[in-house]
Amino acid sequence: MCMAVPSRVVAIDNGMATVEAFGATRTCSLMLLSESVEIGDYLILGVGGGFAQDIMPKETALAALSFMAEVLADGRA
């Protein structure tokens, strides 16, 4: 299934964000977003992960991450 992992912004530098999800960090561009992004926001990255394409409300993101953690723990999904 095409799950997209909400990634938490941990740093922003010159239009690029460092984001974290499940202990892994990566860098993505914020240039496709119209809204301004702050540290602590949750982003949905587009295919390939180079660009953030959406900001997800925190409550929604936490619910999705909690479910995905169960999927990962389950292993056979």
Binding site: C2, A4, V47, A64
Partner: peptide, 11 residues
């Protein structure tokens, strides 16, 4: 029904 669009957010 709330989780579905959050987890499968690409579509």
């Amino acid at each position: 029904l709330n989780l579905i669009p959050a987890v499968f957010s690409l579509c």
